[in-house]
Every structure is written in structure tokens, then in C-alpha cells.
Design a protein around this nucleic acid. Structure first.
Lengths: 141, 141
DNA sequence: TATATCTGTATCAATATTAGTTACAAATAC
DNA sequence: GTATTTGTAACTAATATTGATACAGATATA
């Protein structure tokens, strides 16, 4: 399977929208920068819309724009908006409950999973979309 | 595809080996607790062996045991030993280089990726196998 | 009202990865 | 020499993601 790149796409899309200001931007235009199909963009935008990060408008001259300024959007909320699972997965099949380790390890791993996800969220929360965009612009300085 | 559960399997396997002390443990026995095929266990053990975490022996009465005490094995080194990629993936197709954002965003995302991976590693580094096992045993107290 | 445009979404194909299985060579204890 | 166990190759099945096509619904404008 292809690795899940929705977070990367979401950040790319939002960077484009931030540059577009208050104007509606078409999914086709964004797709031109991300180098993919407009439907793929609209799928990600749907999740970002549900999270209240962007606001879309159908019809002629429709499109999407940010629902709040880039300085008020953290990478953490973007990550959660498109979140596609955990950093590591638990057992694909439940372990053997007749073994004392098998019986208890899932709960311990689940606790650990939450700790890690929390750490990732904290780190991503240190960045706003605005300061990420500064980094993008500074890359070729 | 099934989500990657090799880290969970690795921790499970190492918990079993820790309980087994200095005795060689067979992949078939471990597979009984993890509830999977012995070959799946041996695949994970191969990676843990390359990382110097376990030591295996072929032949009759062979098997695998820890290469060092559980108090000297961190969850971070286990994660790195079986590491199967990053917390989030970069674009599946390269963005459009003719767009200033498309041209620079991959580098910025790559930097961010390393930051996140570092945060995950730091958090996992707070746990040794020994203290994780304490948690497993404490679950049903 | 009619038309053109754009989103939202369903559906399908292509691709990639993981888990699981079988099979067997190589190594080793007895 | 024999039985046992790892290491590894090869294959299947299941599943997730991306990408593509198609079309209904909404909306600005004439």
C-alpha cells in the first residue's frame, strides 16, 4: 500500500490557502501544486472542513479558504483532523489470553500508544501554520 | 493492508524472553503467546538480533534469549530496531516544482518529520523493557 | 430562469505493504 | 547420524491508500 501522506497533503493545501488570503481557491488549482487529482484534494479538504479549519463553498466561483488565520491553526489540530491511526499498531490478532503475558500486554501497549500519541501531539502543537509557512519560505534563503 | 504491528510484536516477544531468563526460547513457543506463526516471530527476532538486543542459536535445543538485561534495553532501541517508517509520510508523488510552495514544502516537511520522530524516540527512551514489564504485570492488580 | 462552474461523494482500478503459510537449507546438540 | 531449530525464500490473502471517472447538488451570473 502507499504510505499515508494525508498530513503532508493537508499541510501543503493549507499553506496554499494561507497564501491565497480570503479568496476562494479551487481544488483543481491546489491539485496543480500538490501534483495530484482534484478529488484527492477535496477528500482532504472535507476532513479539514469538518474540523473547522477551512470553509468551502459550492457552485460557480466557489472553492475553499481558511476558516481562521494561520497563526491560530496548529499542526496538531491538522494532524488530528486527518488522523489516520496511531504511531504503532497493536497486535493484528489478539494474543493468547491463556498466557499471563498475552492476557495483559495489550492493555500495557495501549497505554503506551496513548503516551506516544500525546508526545506527537505536543510536539506538533508547538508549530502554528503561520510559523511552518515561515520555514517553507526560508528554505532556499 | 494490515497496520504495522511489528513494534507491538517485538515488545511482546522481548517480554516473553525476559521472563524466560537465560534459557533459549523457541520461536514456536513465543508464537503460541503472540498467537501467530513462528516464522513471523523469527522475522522480528532477526531484526532484534541485528540490533544486538537478542541472541539466537540454531540447531537442536537452539532458540533465542536476551543479549542484555531488560533494564538496559529501552523501548526506543526496540522501536528503531523494527522501525518501519515515519510517523507521517511525505508526498507520494513529488509536488510541482514550478510552484514556489511545491518546490520548498518537501524540505520543510522532512525537517518536521525528523522533529516528530525525535520526540517519539525521546518518549520511548523514557521506558526500559524492565519497567514496561512492571506495567504489564501491574495491569490486573 | 438558464447556464456554467465547482464542491461533495460514490465507485472502481492500480499499487503497495503486512501478516500469515509452506518449504527447505544450514547449523547444532546429543 | 539423527532430530531439532533457526534463517530465509517464495507465495497467498487481506487491507489501505492513491488516483481516476462520473455525476448530483449548489450557486453566481447573465
Amino acid at each position: 500500500m502507499a504510505a499515508n501522506s494525508q498530513f503532508s497533503m493537508a499541510v501543503h493545501i493549507l499553506t496554499m490557502l494561507a497564501k491565497g488570503g480570503d479568496e476562494n481557491m479551487k481544488s483543481e488549482y491546489i491539485a496543480g501544486s500538490v501534483n495530484t487529482n482534484p478529488v484527492v484534494i477535496r477528500r482532504v479538504l472535507g476532513q479539514l472542513g469538518q474540523a473547522g479549519i477551512v470553509s468551502s463553498q459550492t457552485g460557480a466561483f466557489g472553492g475553499t479558504r481558511l476558516a481562521k488565520p494561520p497563526s491560530e491553526i496548529t499542526l496538531c489540530e491538522i494532524y488530528k483532523a486527518v488522523s489516520c491511526g496511531e504511531v504503532f499498531a497493536l497486535h493484528s490478532k489478539a494474543p493468547n489470553k491463556d498466557c499471563p503475558i498475552g492476557a495483559n500486554i495489550e492493555a500495557a501497549l495501549c497505554y503506551l500508544q496513548k503516551e506516544i500519541d500525546h508526545a506527537v501531539g505536543d510536539k506538533l502543537g508547538e508549530y502554528t501554520l503561520a510559523c511552518f509557512i515561515d520555514k517553507v519560505c526560508a528554505v532556499h534563503v
